[in-house]
Design a protein around this nucleic acid. Structure first.
Lengths: 354, 354
DNA sequence: CTGAAAGCGCTTACAG
DNA sequence: CTGAAAGCGCTTACAG
């Protein structure tokens, strides 16, 4: 591979001149003839500046790191999309780390290796900045990362001690989900929340409770269960609720699941319990996906601007690299309830009407 | 951030000695006392070797690039998982590029920017090697990439001129899908193939035709349509087939879709045409996913070892970095038909029985 | 057992 | 308008 020296030799100029011309350095004027010789030489040699050498000198790598828990979760796939798109737009590359590849985070070993990996990433000099989405990452480690030299922006979560973050309005979206059910006539509404001890889980729970309270409805704590945002998590949560509520008049007539995969798992558990959706139980999910329309019944969801969240995170990070300050931002774009077939008026209401 | 010189100063030795000790250089023996001083100094300064400087010197970046068309496609998510896991295991980092972030590949501009991005990636010096999965990437560009200095392994596709590749047995999996339908009694079997002009699409089509031929069944070309591996693609393909086949005795009693998303789109189109699955039409998909069990009816699929494919690609790439040779490999692990609710004997058979 | 030197390929003040 | 020099932070023969 040709290097700067090779180009300089062919163009019969000094390497520093080549560097200036190729980077379009504005501080220096170069005679047109020289510039053309240089550009021609670079082309014939198919010269590409070495990113490592440049990065070593400039302390800029044009690469940002993105840590997500798991790519299988649709929400994070959307965030990843947004990050990639915004990064590509700005000429940045993305180094992606899926947190769960290192084995179960529960294991001592998994945690250690993950921590080692993260510290390597930030200490290594290969990243200009980092975006951390959600994650199994505990607050302690996030704080450690934040102390390092490179800018850090949190996505889909906030934590004390880190000042840059982008979130969607989890509370509002959750509240809208509950209000959708209330609007249909439901009064006993269950909540399948996230178990992780992070503010995002809390904001979704708060939205649920706020929606209930605003309608003057008491929350029956037997109707609330938490779990990971997975099929198995949603399934187990519904089972837990159903076990606690023996009779049909005890159990919820509608569920709000704080994750899309959780909702699909919840549906499976309801089917296993011979409860028809939406006839006997309604179901609405936080986060939308094209596939939701293809389930049977099609799943009612609240669409959140996750892609925007990823884009904004990149924008904030790039701003920080230019010396700007970071902040805690919430995406303005409002959540949208996509009413499909999994929600309907509760049975009692229908019975009253007939 | 502390550098090698800082550590050397604190430990009162030469930087080169620090380097040897910290890398565990086997060629040089170091006195235990010195070594401990160095390790202590590195620890107190929280020293991390700079990856750029090291990479510049050693020509190793411990980073591999992964290009996938799109992370929304479940199959590629599995591949990505496999790549990440194997890479992490080997201490390598992964730079992920989603091809479709640069805008529609169809557009002249999108293609140009993509090409520029790829050439930058391989010419840049920041990657040790690259894994290219499937992709909108045309053979021409793949060949260009392959000519460059860095090793290249293709995943889920082969092309002339590139010698390293890992694929699953697309033909066998496809044939198994068709045989599953034939085993249930179907004789008019439709094929919803991939439209891309790559060998993977051809191998899946070949499996379909081989399965038909082996059972002595003629392929009705009106039953064959192609499209991208997306919901919209599968939907359009089924519509095309149904349009060509006016009567119930003309149309297929079963469909084999060459992609999972395509199958889900196909199901939607069947429903829109008031054709019940599996009662009136059976449906089986190439590639499995946990979600398939949660569709209604649960979707019968052929599970392919996609994760393994990603792992093998990393292994082959790392082998190539050690000077080993690359080859065209097919994952041995056999495909598995997961029979769920979307396939059943054809109506005519049922009618004959009653 | 350890040090001194050269160099990976760039960029960027500093001269002229 | 262009060149010569220093240096980013490492590694690695080469000495001794």
């Amino acid at each position: 591979m040709a290097n700067l020296k090779d180009v300089a030799r062919l163009a019969e100029v000094d390497p520093s001149t080549v560097s200036r011309v190729l980077r379009g350095d504005p501080s220096q004027a170069v005679r047109p003839a020289t510039r053309e010789r240089i550009i021609g030489a670079a082309q014939t040699l198919a010269y590409r500046p070495n990113a490592l050498a440049r990065g070593l000198r400039t302390r800029r790598t044009d690469t940002i790191g993105l840590i997500i828990p798991n790519i299988d979760n649709f929400g994070f796939a959307e965030v990843t999309h947004g990050v990639q798109a915004a990064a590509a737009q700005a000429g940045k590359l993305v180094l992606l780390i899926e947190a769960d590849i290192l084995g179960p985070e529960s294991s001592r070993d998994g945690t250690d290796r993950m921590e080692e990996l993260y510290l390597r990433l930030v200490g290594d000099g290969r990243l200009d900045g980092m975006i951390v989405a959600f994650a199994s990452l505990d607050d302690h480690l996030v704080a450690q990362l934040a102390e390092r030299q490179i800018p850090l922006v949190l996505v889909n979560r906030r934590t004390t001690g880190v000042s840059g973050s982008v979130v969607v309005d989890d509370e509002r979206g959750s509240r809208m989900a509950v209000e959708h059910l209330i609007g249909l006539g439901h009064r006993r509404i269950g909540f399948l929340g996230l178990e992780a001890d992070i503010d995002t889980a809390r904001r979704r729970a708060r939205g649920y409770r706020a929606g209930m309270a605003a309608a003057g409805l008491a929350v029956d704590e037997r109707h609330v269960a938490t779990g990971p945002p997975t099929l198995a998590g949603g399934r187990a949560a519904v089972r837990a609720v159903l076990e606690r509520c023996a009779s049909a008049t005890d159990r919820p007539t509608g569920f709000f699941a704080a994750s899309l995969l959780g909702a699909i798992g919840a549906h499976a558990a309801l089917r296993e319990a011979d409860l028809a959706v939406p006839h006997e139980v309604s179901l609405i999910a936080f986060n939308d996906h094209e596939l939701a329309a293809h389930l049977d019944p099609p799943l009612t969801t609240v669409r959140m601007p996750n892609g925007r969240m990823g884009q904004e995170a990149v924008a904030m990070l790039l701003g920080a690299l230019e010396g700007g300050s970071v902040e805690d931002r919430m995406i303005e774009e409002p959540p949208v309830v996509i009413a499909r077939g999994s929600t309907a008026p509760p049975m009692t209401n229908i019975e009253e009407r007939t």
